[in-house]
Amino acid sequence: MHDLAARVRRLGPSCGPVRLVAVDGHAGSGKSTFAGRLAQELDDAPVLRLDDIASHEELFDWTGRLLRQVIEPFGRGRTARYAPYDWRTRRFGPPRPLPPAPVVVVEGVGAGRRALRPHLALLLWMDLPREESWARGRARDGAEQRDFWDGWVRAERAHFADDPSRPFADLLVRQRPGGYEVLPGPSGTGVATTLLTHGDEPSSLW
């Protein structure tokens, strides 16, 4: 993780003064855990979770809200303010400040969508097949979330069919026993060597 963090620090700003680093992948692929550990290595960089931007009614139709609340303020060097969504009460909460730090990690399904890519310094894709990812997510959330997952899978299939992220990823992240393997991505802009970050246990969080 140290080597990857060093690479991120060498990148130029991509959104105003901010280096936006996106962690995308299928639901259940381990994005949240990986993003958190990368952010910790980056001197506790802020993590924006797209679960806070999406909602039941807009599983993927949240681009305009993210651009208005986060991307546009960052582009002007200002503190962003976004209203996190509460998935239990089904309503958005009070605005939360997000200062324009040197690095901000954005994690969630769709973090590498076409509308966001021009603002990204780096796009990482958690490289776990979708069926395996979804099985992990379903097992984590249990039977009470079965109906939600059925709807989610349909929505995710439709999203990536129209707006895929993996072909544009700079780096692919694969979980291995005891760590993560980081490989050059399909975009052809990734590092030329394999990095293995040690000391990270696999996780099913997303």
Rank of each mutant, 00 (worst) to 15 (best):
V104F: 08
E144G: 07
F92V: 08
L116Q: 04
F148P: 05
S204W: 13
E144Q: 13
A139I: 04
W62Q: 07
Q145M: 13
E41H: 11
G12S: 15
G185W: 00
A45W: 02
E201V: 14
G151R: 05
L122W: 09
R91V: 12
D162T: 12
V18I: 04
L183A: 02
E41S: 13
D150W: 00
D3H: 14
R166C: 08
H56E: 13
A54L: 01
G178F: 12
E144S: 13
I71H: 03
L120V: 01
P184W: 02
R88I: 15
A135H: 12
R140N: 07
P94V: 14
V18S: 01
L11S: 11
R117V: 11
A139F: 08
Q40R: 15
G36E: 10
I71F: 08
Q69H: 11
P102L: 11
I53D: 01
S14E: 02
G190D: 06
Y85F: 15
T193V: 15
P164I: 00
W149M: 05
R37Y: 11
R10G: 14
W149L: 05
P118R: 07
L123I: 06
S203D: 12
Q145N: 11
P73Q: 08
G108A: 07
L38C: 07
D170T: 11
Q145I: 00
P186C: 05
P17C: 07
T193I: 09
R96E: 15
A45C: 06
Q40A: 15
L42S: 08
E58W: 05
A45F: 04
V182H: 01
K31R: 06
P97G: 05
W62T: 11
Q145C: 06
E131F: 04
R136S: 03
R130S: 13
G178I: 08
G77K: 03
G199Q: 12
G178R: 06
R114V: 11
F34L: 14
R78C: 13
R174P: 03
S203P: 05
R166N: 07
G179C: 03
P177V: 10
P46N: 09
V105E: 09
L122P: 01
V153K: 01
E41I: 01
V23Q: 02
A158T: 13
P186L: 05
G12V: 08
T197S: 14
L4C: 12
L50K: 06
E156C: 09
P184T: 09
W134M: 14
A6C: 10
A155H: 09
G12N: 08
R65A: 15
V70H: 03
G185R: 02
V191T: 13
R176G: 05
P202M: 10
R19H: 08
T89D: 12
D162N: 11
P46H: 02
E132G: 04
A83K: 09
D24P: 03
E57A: 15
G179M: 05
R154M: 12
P97T: 06
G75T: 03
A83Y: 00
L124Y: 00
S29V: 02
G28Y: 03
M1S: 12
L50G: 06
P97D: 09
S204E: 12
R10D: 15
R130N: 05
D24W: 02
T194V: 15
Q175Y: 12
E156L: 04
V191E: 14
V47N: 04
F168A: 15
P177S: 09
W152K: 02
